[in-house]
Design a protein around this nucleic acid. Sequence first.
DNA 1: AGCATATTTAGAATGATTCTAATTCCTTGT
DNA 2: ACAAGGAATTAGAATCATTCTAAATATGCT
Lengths: 142, 142
Amino acid sequence: MVSNSDSSGALAQRLSDSGLRSTPQREVIYSVLLKKRDHPTAEDVFARAKPEMPMISLATVYNCLETLVQCNLVRAVNFERGPTRYCPNLRPHAHFHDEQTGATHDIDLPAGVLDQVKSVLPVNFDAASVEIIFRGKARTET
Amino acid sequence: MVSNSDSSGALAQRLSDSGLRSTPQREVIYSVLLKKRDHPTAEDVFARAKPEMPMISLATVYNCLETLVQCNLVRAVNFERGPTRYCPNLRPHAHFHDEQTGATHDIDLPAGVLDQVKSVLPVNFDAASVEIIFRGKARTET
DNA sequence: AGCATATTTAGAATGATTCTAATTCCTTGT
DNA sequence: ACAAGGAATTAGAATCATTCTAAATATGCT
Ligand SMILES: [Mn+2]
Ligand SMILES: [Mn+2]
Ligand SMILES: [Zn+2]
Ligand SMILES: [Zn+2]
């Protein structure tokens, strides 16, 4: 299973780069995120990990997700005050939140758009990151 | 006090447009937001309203803020999972969250920038709103 | 005035997340 | 192989912003 070893390898690498250990829990959590990229909540991830690892705890899911975010393998995404959602898409992208369905869509950002957006900042503002969130209605084709 | 009557009038107008009543509590909350535009939390607003209206309750502060947001007189702003902040700036603007100080700054958006950003959306995505959040360090002059 | 409805209020409940403290798991050195 | 020390996991308690509930007030209207 090439893609699995690849992601496992990448994960193990990133973890050890940060002085952290590769654990079965962290690998399962990460694989769950890669398998279905629909921006699940921690509870969603917990439910999806359970069948593969019945003894995993919700606290561990929170711990692992936080670890993956710190390693820059996963982005945490928030809409209003809803539960945090997790996204393994590392390309620069915005999020579109469908108010009808609650679904979250990735919107890839062409190079240059982020720079354009950052150009609105006065010189004394030094932005480490920019986040763009759309809200509206998405027409998914049949 | 021209600006006070103006904002009171605007508030009363917007409220009755929505079939809602102008109340002393709603006026105090709105005036608190206009007086110091530093994106206070509900608790902050509560603390600032108390001296002017000692019997006001926190539940009412939440209720009034929600009402003002529904009337489009105030924007609710969220950073990560922190408490919601409230902003009476109605011009199109982004938010810059200073990670050192925790301060929130309004960044006015020139006409056209929002359109540019919306242009990255595929045709089947219909955005009702766009939110832009910067995170970083702000150099406020002495 | 009398009634219906809107609003306010105090306090309880909620829910996502974090914390605590105990256990288990690894890694490393002997 | 063994032991020690630190890292990670776990269950359950605690936190905290917000929402809900139910009762008391205020307001607008006939
Ligand atoms: Mn958000
Ligand atoms: Mn946010
Ligand atoms: Zn995403
Ligand atoms: Zn603002």
